[in-house]
Nucleic acid binder design. Structure first.
Length: 754
DNA sequence: CGCCAAACTTAGTAAATTACGT
DNA sequence: ACGTAATTTACTAAGTTTGGCG
């Protein structure tokens, strides 16, 4: 699929370096920390979608924010490092822990884990290798018989006795079962982090799966549902009807009213029509999808109103699909697949002002799909009457199947779940690289501070960009093809129109005001005091440029990353995000939590530390639909509780008075006093808890914590914190997060330092 | 070396499920 | 027991980085 590439390079105003200014500031660089002090009310783009070319369109409705004028010089505190992760990525071998107690260069923290592991898993103490073999055999069988087992299991239990309330024993039994299941799961978990890594690019030795799951074929409309054109009933061909229904289903959505969306849809829809249909249907405005829309709504409603039994049937059917297609066998271990379903056809909805919104995302056929698996072992069977596009056996990649999507012409992959070895190992490695950056970040910062004074314009641009990436955790910012995607930028692709320089703003000198749309059209708005050298460079970069010109005209991500990797193997722009996120969490946790706090308070602090990171990384969310409502509810509850507390207090006083006057010897009165005291205390605690909750929720209104938790924060920091603070890991990680971070939970001791 | 396809991570939102208060 | 709110999972778009090729 040829993507047309055209006149984009044209506009690059190549900037001639003017004379070099000697700048005299010598503040040191520093990152991460500052942003935290920013007020929580970060600006979610009011006009998330307003991305147009016109300069500064976005800029109007900024929430006034007063940045703390914290000097950028307070750099992140450095901890002594025991880590010496130094060899090149490629030759990385992980030592088998039990065999050789590991002075392994790369994963210093694995050592403590081995100790613990020995403690915890005495049962498996037969020779490691033997156990391995046994396990894998068992697993293989398990995979095959998995479905039947599951069915059996359910039958075995008390088939959830219809309505009758369950007896205490039954509840207890269920609980026991849960515990048992949990243990079983723990037992069968693949502890890949204790195994040796494969050489170089090899990702697996054996891979077997059932191929992707295809969405059901299109069901034609029932006879009583019609499409009308220009007021006349029109029976559409199957293909055209399917696409019409896609549109009808979106009629409630705002974007079905957008011009670009409608135009794209109509154009693509017409491509699906027969010649006759195309002749007839020329104007979208004359199309009446009313009955299709109504049918869809009725279906949704019906689904909602299904009885318990019906829902159970659906659930079981889904489970069956998961059992059959949701797992693969990778090097003798059963692994969950992340996205085993082929994406169903529909109308493309990009984010923000996407030029391709509304285009038809086509149905994928087996003939479009490439399968990747072992040569030996079963090869997935394509759906009846079909064949695969290709079957290949490439063990240097991690995907099981792929296809090319028709909107952008990019490849989509079917890959493993986050709790798999392949994903986990990579994740671990990511954090090790970030920790390595910790050990040399000072040098790198000194270097780019020097480079700010370089006589080469390119070098200075690189230095300023790096300063932003480090201090503000901006993304690298690849260039994008105009017209293919929404107009968003990152660091290297910033344009003149995205920053405003203020010699003096809100009492701070040298303030850079950023306002641009980043990934997913999320607005980045920030006013940041920078060091003078950076400020002066920026002024220089802006000279003789138009708002639409690139700020860093001598720089792109590839230049930047090449430079970075020369400073430290494995270093790229995004490592700074990981590093600054993780180091910020660690530092904030240290600052905010006390061992003496209650669990609720500790968790609030954890959330706050997490939030500091989310703010740094600009992870936003739409305020929940019901936010104001639920906030009001909570407030009402707090008020009610306050009243109750007041009442309890007067009662206590009353009781005390009585106890005093009517002879303090009366034990009944004494216990009454005690009881009232307890009530007051309980009330106070509950009130505090709710107030804490309210604070937490309010502060979180438009901040998304999940993204940083899942992708930027070294889980070992959190696990170590839990150990130190005696907080259950379950309190901060839910089930799937615990699965994803199983490696960290298993290997991390309380003394872990990022 | 620049360009582009490939591969993989990161991202927000919608749907589904579970928890919770009445 | 039931309806609502909160949480979790599913989904897939949108980034970054690498490496091969002309």
């Amino acid at each position: 699929m040829g993507r047309e590439k055209d006149a984009k390079g044209e506009g690059k105003a190549k900037y001639k370096a003017t004379k070099l200014k000697r700048l005299s500031d010598n503040e040191s660089a520093g990152a991460g920390g500052d942003a935290i002090k920013n007020s929580i009310k970060s600006a979610k783009s009011a006009e998330k979608t307003d991305s147009g070319k016109s300069p500064k369109k976005v800029k109007k409705s900024k929430t006034e924010r007063h940045e703390s004028a914290s000097s950028p010089s307070e750099s992140v505190k450095q901890e002594p490092m025991d880590d010496d992760f130094r060899e090149k990525k490629k030759g990385l071998k992980r030592k088998r822990i039990k065999d050789e107690p590991m002075e392994g260069p790369s994963h210093s923290t694995a050592t403590p884990s081995s100790k613990k592991k020995n403690k915890r898993h005495k049962q498996e103490e037969e020779s490691d290798r033997e156990a391995e073999k046994k396990k894998s055999k068992k697993k293989t069988e398990k995979v095959n018989s998995c479905l039947s087992q599951m069915v059996k299991k359910e039958e075995g239990e008390h088939p959830i006795s219809k309505k009758p309330k369950r007896t205490k024993e039954e509840i207890e039994e269920a609980r026991q079962l849960k515990i048992k299941k949990k243990e079983e799961e723990e037992q069968s978990r693949w502890r890949w982090w204790e195994e040796e890594k494969y050489e170089d690019g090899v990702k697996w030795k054996f891979l077997e799966h059932n191929g992707p799951y295809f969405p059901a074929n299109y069901e034609p409309l029932p006879d009583n549902v019609h499409f009308y054109y220009n007021g006349k009933k029109v029976k559409l061909s199957l293909a055209a009807e399917e696409v019409a229904l896609f549109f009808a289903q979106m009629l409630d959505h705002e974007y079905s009213t957008k011009k670009v969306f409608r135009d794209n849809f109509f154009k693509d829809w017409r491509k699906e029509m027969t010649h006759e249909e195309r002749l007839l249907i020329q104007d979208l405005e004359k199309c009446d999808f009313g009955e299709l829309h109504a049918m869809h709504k009725a279906k949704v409603e019906a689904r909602k109103n299904m009885t318990k039994e019906e829902k159970l049937v659906v659930k079981e059917a889904n489970q069956k699909i998961v059992d059959e297609y949701g797992y693969c066998l990778l090097d003798h271990h059963k692994e969950r697949i992340g996205n085993f379903k082929i994406e169903p056809p529909g109308l493309f909805r990009g984010r923000g002002e996407h030029p391709k919104q509304g285009m038809l995302k086509k149905r994928i056929q087996p003939e479009d799909v490439i399968i990747n698996c072992s040569k030996e072992g079963r090869i997935p069977i394509p759906p009846a009457g079909h064949r695969w596009k290709e079957v290949r056996h490439d063990n240097t990649v991690t995907w099981l199947a792929s296809w090319t999507e028709n909107i952008q012409g990019s490849i989509k992959y079917i890959m493993l779940n986050a709790n798999s070895k392949l994903k986990g190992e990579k994740d671990w490695e990511k954090y090790e690289i970030a920790r390595k950056l910790k050990s040399c970040v000072d040098d790198i910062r000194n270097q780019y501070m020097q480079d700010l004074k370089s006589k080469h314009m390119g070098t200075r641009q690189r230095a300023v960009a790096l300063y932003f990436i480090d201090k503000l955790a901006l993304r690298a910012g690849n260039e994008k093809e105009e017209g293919e995607t929404a107009d968003t930028v990152g660091c290297c692709s910033l344009r003149v129109e995205h920053i405003t320089l203020h010699e003096l703003l809100d009492g701070s000198e040298c303030v850079v005001e950023f306002d641009f749309l980043g990934k997913d059209c999320i607005r980045y708005y920030n006013k940041v005091p920078v060091i003078r050298k950076v400020f002066k460079n920026l002024k220089l970069f802006l000279e003789n440029k138009q708002p639409g010109d690139e700020l860093f005209d001598r720089l792109n991500t590839s230049v930047l990353n090449k430079h970075l990797s020369s400073l430290m193997p494995g270093l790229t722009a995004k490592v700074f995000r990981t590093y600054n996120a993780s180091i910020t969490l660690q530092q904030q946790l240290k600052e905010l939590t006390n061992k003496a706090d209650s669990v609720a308070e500790k968790l609030l602090s954890y959330n706050r530390a997490n939030r500091a990171v989310a703010i740094l990384c600009n992870h936003q969310r739409a305020p929940p639909k019901t936010f104001d409502q639920s906030m009001a509810n909570l407030q009402a509850k707090i008020d009610a509780r306050k009243e109750q507390l007041a009442l309890a207090k007067t009662e206590l006083k009353q009781a005390k008075k009585e106890a005093k006057t009517k002879g303090s010897s009366d034990p009944k009165l004494q216990t009454l006093v005690e009881r009232k005291k307890a009530a007051v205390k309980r009330c106070e605690e509950q009130l505090l808890k709710m107030e804490v909750q309210a604070t937490d929720r309010e502060e979180n209104k438009q901040i998304a914590l999940g993204t940083s938790k899942l992708n930027y924060l070294d889980p070992r920091i959190s696990v170590a914190w839990c150990k130190n603070m005696e907080v259950l890991v379950d309190k901060i990680y839910n089930k799937s997060q615990r699965d994803k971070f199983a490696w960290a939970i298993d290997m991390t001791e309380a003394d872990f330092e990022f």
